[in-house]
């Protein structure tokens, strides 16, 4: 069994565009674009996590490039690449030997989490896209389209993915359950949907974790749902609000430096955590988070800034 098949998310990832869960309109227009492959524009997929953006990009690569898909697709994740120069270098090296293989119309570059790039980096990216347009097509993927600068949007055909409705998520989970021979009940599956907030990828991961305990029941789902490190960010916030600044900071540093959570993900999750606490100073807390998020974006040292954030949050506790 290959490493990627370990996770059901990978094992059951569709390989054909037609198999994509939901997103019927997008699938339709993509298929009509494919009728004239060499004319295909760059693509920009936006939408929340786990609705099929990366999957569709990979399907496209399979269908256009056929057996050459692996060698002729470059997958980049802006959250992992340090700076635009890294992106430029990797794109350059990748596109250098293009055109030798006439069996494919072009190479494909999938840039995931493109909205993690600063506006400056995106401006540089624009140039990279133009320079390689003869040889490569870009598929940019972003959660939030408003964070993608207009000049890039205008160079791409934009597809906005909608969230997958509960009945479709549950239907898909049932399909997997059948293939994996799991016993599931309706309450269990509904609980998975609720915890994963419409994110099909998360739902499948949660299904798998729950299955390792036994049947897919509400109780088992509950036990597995608290496992993710998102929960730890909730704890960091609680510790800070309780004035336990040193514990909060140690946990924050562990999340970032041991488990590799990016600073921007940390800020995203702590922001979401604030809404769960029902603290009466909600808007002050969110404004404080925004202040430090901005400082980090403008080039300050994340560790110092996040520590200062946690220290400042202590004053909003009870």
């Amino acid at each position: 069994m290959s490493v990627s098949d370990l996770m059901w998310v990978e094992k059951y990832r569709p390989h054909k565009i037609a198999e994509l869960v939901d997103q019927k309109e997008i699938v339709g227009s993509i298929q009509s674009l494919l009728k004239n492959q060499s004319e295909m524009p760059h693509l920009l997929f936006s939408g929340s996590a786990g609705v099929g953006k990366t999957t569709l990009a990979l399907c496209l690569s399979h269908e256009i490039l056929g057996e050459h898909w692996k060698d002729s697709t470059l997958e980049l994740n802006a959250s992992d690449e340090r700076g635009i120069n890294m992106v430029r270098d990797r794109v350059k090296t990748f596109s250098r030997y293009a055109g030798l293989d006439s069996k494919i119309p072009f190479k494909i570059i999938i840039l995931d989490e493109a909205d993690e790039m600063t506006a400056d980096a995106q401006t540089a990216l624009r140039r990279i896209i133009e320079d390689t347009a003869k040889i490569c097509r870009f598929i940019l993927i972003a959660n939030n389209i408003s964070k993608i600068i207009d000049p890039i949007q205008s160079r791409c055909a934009v597809f906005k993915f909608s969230t997958i409705p509960e009945k479709d998520v549950v239907f898909h989970l049932k399909e997997i359950s059948k293939k994996e021979k799991l016993k599931s009940d309706e309450n269990g599956l509904a609980a998975i949907y609720e915890y994963s907030e419409g994110d099909l990828r998360h739902a499948i991961n949660l299904l798998q974790a729950t299955a390792s305990l036994g049947d897919i029941t509400e109780a088992n789902v509950k036990t597995s749902a608290g496992l993710t490190k998102v929960k730890d960010v909730d704890i960091v916030l609680k510790l800070a609000l309780d004035g336990k600044i040193s514990d909060a900071r140690n946990k924050m540093i562990e999340l970032i430096k041991v488990y590799g959570m990016s600073e921007s993900d940390f800020l995203k999750y702590i922001n979401a955590a604030v809404y769960k606490t029902k603290n009466k100073n909600l808007s002050d807390i969110v404004q404080t988070i925004a202040k430090y998020d901005f400082r980090i974006l403008s080039g300050a040292n994340p560790e110092i800034q996040l520590s200062a954030l946690l220290a400042e949050l202590t004053k909003f506790g009870k």
Binding site: L206, T228, Y259, G260, M261
Partner: peptide, 14 residues
Amino acid sequence: HISRSTFGTLYFPY
């Protein structure tokens, strides 16, 4: 096909 951050946060614990 995910970032390291997503892996550490949402996949690794499961």
